[in-house]
Design a protein around this nucleic acid. Sequence first.
RNA 1: GGGGGCGUGGUCUAGCGGUUUAUGACACCGGCCUUUCACGCCGGGGAUCGCGGGUUCGAAUCCCGUCGCCCCUACCA
Length: 453
Amino acid sequence: MKTWIASHPRSTPRSCACARPPAVDTWAPISIGRMRVRFAPSPTGVLHIGGARTALYNWLLAHRHGGAFVLRIEDTDRERSTPENVEQILDALRWLELDWDEGPLSQAERAPAHTAAIEQLLSAGHAYEDEGAVRLRVPDDGETVIQDLIRGEIATPNQAIQDFVVRRSDGSALYNLAVAVDDRDMGITHVVRGEDHISNTPRQVMILRALGEEPPVYAHLPLLHGPDGKKLSKRHGAASVQELRASGYLPEAVRNYIALLGWGYDESTTFFTTDELIDRFDLSRVSKNPAVFDEQKLRWMNGRYLRGLPVEELKSRLERLTGRELPTEAVEISQDKMQTLADFWPLAGFLVERRDFDDRAWSKVMRDGAAERLRAAREALEQADAFDVETVEQALRGVVERFDAKPKDVFQPVRVAIAGTTVSPGIFESVAALGRQETLARIDSALLKASGG
RNA sequence: GGGGGCGUGGUCUAGCGGUUUAUGACACCGGCCUUUCACGCCGGGGAUCGCGGGUUCGAAUCCCGUCGCCCCUACCA
C-alpha cells in the first residue's frame, strides 16, 4: 500500500487555463480532444533542475492548451523508490507551484495492467517467452519512425533493436512496457521528456503498435549540463530544487530562469511572468542542444525578482526562510542589496541581533584616529533632535565636516561599530533602523575595545 | 562495435539562403553614482557560426563528409 498516493490531495484547481484559447500551430495533427501531458519522474533522489524544467514545460503546455497535467511516479524499481524520495519530488513541485491535475499515480500499482498487456502481446504472437522472461518480437527489417515536435522525424532501423525484454522472469514489467501502457491508459496525448529517452521511444512505439494503439506525439527536450560541460549532477552545487530553495531563490525566478534554459521567445525578452510564459511557450521554439545551468545568471535574475517584491511580501518570505520575525525597516533597506533571500542575514542580521566585530574589518577601519571620529559620531548621534534617516545623516555629515575628513573615515568606523563588518545597508538607514539606544550602546562597546578594553 | 541525437562569444540565446560589419542577456573590463558592498546608468573587449568540401551570384542558414560531446544498445528507469 502506498500511503503517499492518498495522503496528498489534488492540487488546487486553476481558473485561467480553460479561458485561454488553445493554440493550433504545433498541435494541429492531433488536436482531437483535450491535451493530456504527464511528468513521470523516477523517485531515485531529489528533483533536479533538469526534471524541474521538464515539469515546467509540461505544466506550461497543459495550461496553454487547456489540457491536463498528470503526475506519475515511476517507482517500479523498488530498491531506489522510497516514500522519502517521492515526498521530496512532490515537495519540490509544490514549492515551484507546478500543481498537477491528476495523480500522483504509482506506476508500481499498475502492475495488473502491465501484466494484462503482456498477456495480450503473448497471445497475439507479438512477444514470446525466453528463459522465463518475455521478449517483444522486433522486425528484422524496416525502420521505426517517430515524429518529434522539436527535432522532426527520427528514424531508427529496426535492425538496431534486438528483441527486448518486456517482462522479467519474476513476472514484473520493465520500463519501456510500463511507460507505453501507462501513457496509453492515462490517455496521454503528448509525451514531453528529456532527450535521454529518444532511443527508448522506438521501443515504446513498437509496444504500442503491437497492442493496436497509435503512439502519442513526442517532444524530446535537450539535456542540462553543469558548468563543466558534464551531465548535471549533485556535485554541481545548487542543482536540486531543494537546494535552490535553501539558497534563497524565489520560485517565480527559478521558473523564469529554467524556462529560458532551452527556450527563447524572441531576441531580447528575458523576463516573463508565469502568465506570459503560458501564453508564449511553444515547443517549436525549444532548442535542440544541451544547455548549461549558470547559477550566476540565476542569482542576477533572482535579484531582479527580489527587488520587484513589495516589502511586506519580501519580509514574509524572509521570515519563512529564516524562521524568525524581522523588522520591516531591516528588510526595506536591504532589498536593493540582495540577490537571494539568503543574502539578507549576513547583510542585515546585525539589525536583529548583535554580533561580534569581524577582525579583518576592525583592523582595516579602526585605525588612524578612527576612535576619535567614532567618539565624535557618538556625541552627535546622542544629541541629534530626532533619529530618523535625515537627522542621522545630518549628524554624521556634521562630524565629517568638523574633522575635515573623507566621508568614509567617519562612516566606516560607525558601520563596523554597529554591524561588526564593513558591509551593511546604507549607513544612515542602518543607524536609524537600529535606533538610538542600541546604536550608542554598540558604539560604546566598540570604543571600549578600541581603548584596549 | 551498432543505432540515435546535438554542435553560434566562457554561459543562455536570436538567426530559418541576401536589410548581419552575427541579436539580446549573464559573466568579464572601464567609467559614472557613492558612505562599504551592492543596485542603477553609460561604454568596451570577446564568436566568422566545430572542421572540410559542395550547391549558389550569395550560406551560420541547403547537401555531403569529418571531428567532438551526449543518449540507447540491462530481466535499470
